[in-house]
Write a protein that binds this DNA or RNA. Sequence first.
DNA 1: TTGTAGGCGTTATCAT
DNA 2: ATGATAACGCCTACAA
Lengths: 353, 353
Amino acid sequence: MLPEVTTIYDVARRSKVSTATVSRVVRGGTGYSAATRDRVLAVIDELGWVPSGAARQLASRRAGIIGLLFPDLLTSDSSEEDSPLFVDQVIRGAERAATSAGDAVLIAATRQASGRQLAFSVASKADGLVVVARSLSQADLASIADRVPIVVLAGRVGRRKFDYVAADNRGGARTLTSHLLEVHGYRDFAFIAGLGGSPDSDERFAGYREALTGAGVAAPEKPDAEGDFTETGGRRAMETLLASRPRLPQVVVVANDQMAIGALAVLRAGRLRVPGDVAMTGFDDIALARHVRPALTTVRQPMREMGEVSVRLLLERLANSEAPRQSVVLPTSVVLRRSCGCQDPPSVVQDVA
Amino acid sequence: MLPEVTTIYDVARRSKVSTATVSRVVRGGTGYSAATRDRVLAVIDELGWVPSGAARQLASRRAGIIGLLFPDLLTSDSSEEDSPLFVDQVIRGAERAATSAGDAVLIAATRQASGRQLAFSVASKADGLVVVARSLSQADLASIADRVPIVVLAGRVGRRKFDYVAADNRGGARTLTSHLLEVHGYRDFAFIAGLGGSPDSDERFAGYREALTGAGVAAPEKPDAEGDFTETGGRRAMETLLASRPRLPQVVVVANDQMAIGALAVLRAGRLRVPGDVAMTGFDDIALARHVRPALTTVRQPMREMGEVSVRLLLERLANSEAPRQSVVLPTSVVLRRSCGCQDPPSVVQDVA
DNA sequence: TTGTAGGCGTTATCAT
DNA sequence: ATGATAACGCCTACAA
């Protein structure tokens, strides 16, 4: 026995009005008497009718769905704890912004090859897409963009062609490094980067260099070591660093928290004290950063807010496709803890201008 | 200038075939020559046509969308780190299972009052729903269920009416408590519960009691203190416990990790050694549990797997609505670390039968 | 192998 | 204030 869904026709017939009137009533439009409204509403309730999303979308060209595309971060061999919380937070933020506007969020992780097809599939179901950087090739991005509006999330500041929102990675790294220079007086630095070519890592390295250069400290062209954003990767990078340098730097600036935590483990295993022998900083302010010993000085990105703002931007564009392109760079903030050498964790959060 | 989306008619005209043939080709059906296929495919590519999800759903009664409803856990005042990772993991799992079946996941958090409407909205857009326990009233659940298939996630084992998947909370708590009794020989216990009436907390308490009773240890009818699943809540509950008991129990069994971590902080502040003066255990095995000092003995729920299995169950029902109701209870496992008194963290994972 | 045409459940445009 | 009736873009018997 088939579900036999009730349709707008059933409602119309039973309340002795036309489907047009039913439609008006449910959408809160105008043009019907209070009596009609009550009658229709009663019948709807009685029949338990729920308008078909598909039919609605087809006729009104509005699905009430925001697509969110992100790169698959929990692939095969990366262990549970390596899976970044970044996307989770972004999802939460997006969900919140969308829901409060009456929309829902359709999510899909693009895994390597299958990404293209998935992206199109999602695009065909949503009114617009929020695409987290690096989850799609530029070509695919462009070809989808001329079907539905797109907002790009994260990625390098300065991208064109689309609306985008990003965190001020560079500014955060710059402020953090300045703190290291000015407050602690460090002069001998080392930098552990994330995956080569990652916009986030690059931006952070750039900010780091800007601060060093600005302080008259020689800054190398390239990072001293490179990991892959995971704890394991950080461990390896730290080992490489240790092996390649004759003597310890005063401070190691790491491109993200997870790698910093891995690096911390290596130092601990080598009986090196942090921040006594070497200071260290991370980036992201994941929950762990606060709990690890020593607590990790880091830079916080407003991940949830990034998700929210992306959706908001998208909704704006949906409402007005002619509006000028917008780009929002959200401020990051430096979180001072023990690992950089600060005493008695002030837990102060220092905003980046 | 309007987007002027290209439709199947454009493709048909340009490749000089009927829309039926285009449809056959794109869906990989049968009944066309290789030459025709290539020609159509070429035109599709040239025109950049993407079939409309809405039209497709309307005609085929299949949206390719799985809805996921969960309670809003990051409300207002709860701080960032208190937001549970449970749902995040479930989302990941669901996304993975759905994507590999060619579907996408539509997510929505039900916030208090608005829940009902949101749920219906999502139901109207999806082929089926995975509903995380407590995100909807029984009445709403029922009224949605006779429109689309529903799978209930988590919640108490033993529910009827719907397909459901749950973790073996009771078994996990029982095994954990038995370990405490048998290996460590503890006899004086205390239990910190989560929110009153939470099925998860109740089940865990039940398992705890079963083990105690089975070992001939008197088990109180009610938990010794109650928190709200957050770190802060755990802190408060521990303070209450401390204030209300003349002397320390040998071990405190806490209903989840976050509260346990809060409780740990209280003990540390009181200069009490864990597990020296009091032993402690958590539940969930969040990432932090491993990094906190002492590392927390806890019970792991296969959160991601729960998401995956839910979607799989839903897809099965979508394929065959007549199949008998299914319920899957996934095993939990005890993770032994320092906080319960175990030496030299064996990091052993002990499966629950 | 290919085409024709009706139907899917709403919305929206005209009338009335 | 209400009602007919085209779209909307695709799928799918049924024919050819």
